[in-house]
Design a protein around this nucleic acid. Structure first.
Lengths: 164, 164
DNA sequence: CCAAGATGTTTTAAGTCTAAAATGTTTAGG
DNA sequence: CCTAAACATTTTAGACTTAAAACATCTTGG
């Protein structure tokens, strides 16, 4: 009996209910916060979250970025970026030009208008985040950062494994 | 001088860079995992993540749910659910009927086919999650659950405050 | 050089998603 | 009763999103 159950144990379906609950909770948190930020951005600045996110990437890169860079950073598809950029160029927030050294590459950067508008939004955005995470102590934040870093590493390895 | 800086401190822009970084890390984790699950669902079962999520909600409710219930649980708009349900009824995974007691209400539930297919997917899905979170110890999982619960509570309060 | 292959972007087709307005139904107060 | 408010859902218009195919341009080994 003991031998049997030990032998079987390897093949028996293991219980991963806790990990599943963790994933659902992580997803709930993100969806909740994302929805709140989306609503405030629309209400306050009449801008969508993807546009804000894209501008945030560009704000960190004064010399501009290629579409591929943006796509990787934002973890969205190439085609997605193409459309977003189109609309942001149209509205005068972005400048887009073909690279001098590689004619495949499109370099985009914030226009003066785009940067000014983004900075206004970013300031307020930061206070919203502070409000949303307001109940967490400094220690909570540190601990969450650590555990999420570990989670990210674990997930990246899983992605790697599948791609082999 | 001391008085001045103390007086000013209240109005000075506080530094919330840490919370911002936490939010970005949370978002990165979720996006990364969500993308991986989406890809595996498509590759293995040719199903989209929203469809899987909707079926997961219904699997937990043998007596069916109303569209509003689903919308609240999934934290998506009503119109979104209408479209999703349409396609899942079309493909034979869902059954939809008007409530006997309230003709405004639509009750949906999994068909036999829908339930069977979901169960197969769910089993595999759970192993993917276990794989993705594989580096976390039991203690990590417990601690993350706790901190995310606190985060969720904090965010919900912020949502509440805005709605007043 | 020059044909593969790699790389960067766009296009396509279909699905997902939202906010807001419209529609249909129920509930309650007068 | 009957109308105003509340509620559940659908519709609408537009934006976002993906995967995959198509297109354009570079890079490189022979």
């Amino acid at each position: 009996m003991t031998l049997d159950s030990e032998t079987k144990a390897v093949e028996l379906p293991e219980d991963h209910a806790e990990e599943l609950r963790l994933w659902l909770r992580l997803l709930t948190c993100t969806t909740l916060i994302e929805g709140e930020i989306r609503g405030r951005l629309r209400e306050r600045f009449d801008v969508t979250l993807p546009r804000f996110d894209l501008m945030a990437q560009l704000d960190k890169a004064p010399d501009g970025m290629t579409l591929s860079d943006v796509s990787k950073r934002m973890m969205v598809s190439n085609g997605n970026v193409t459309g977003l950029v189109e609309r942001l160029v149209e509205s005068g927030h972005l400048d887009r030009r073909t690279s001098d050294t590689d004619r495949r590459v499109q370099v985009i950067r914030l226009t003066k208008l785009g940067r000014a508008e983004f900075r206004k939004m970013a300031t307020e955005h930061e206070t919203w985040i502070a409000d949303i995470f307001g109940d967490l102590t400094e220690k909570d934040v540190r601990e969450l950062m650590r555990l999420l870093a570990k989670t990210k590493g674990s997930a990246q390895k899983a992605v790697q494994r599948r791609q082999d």
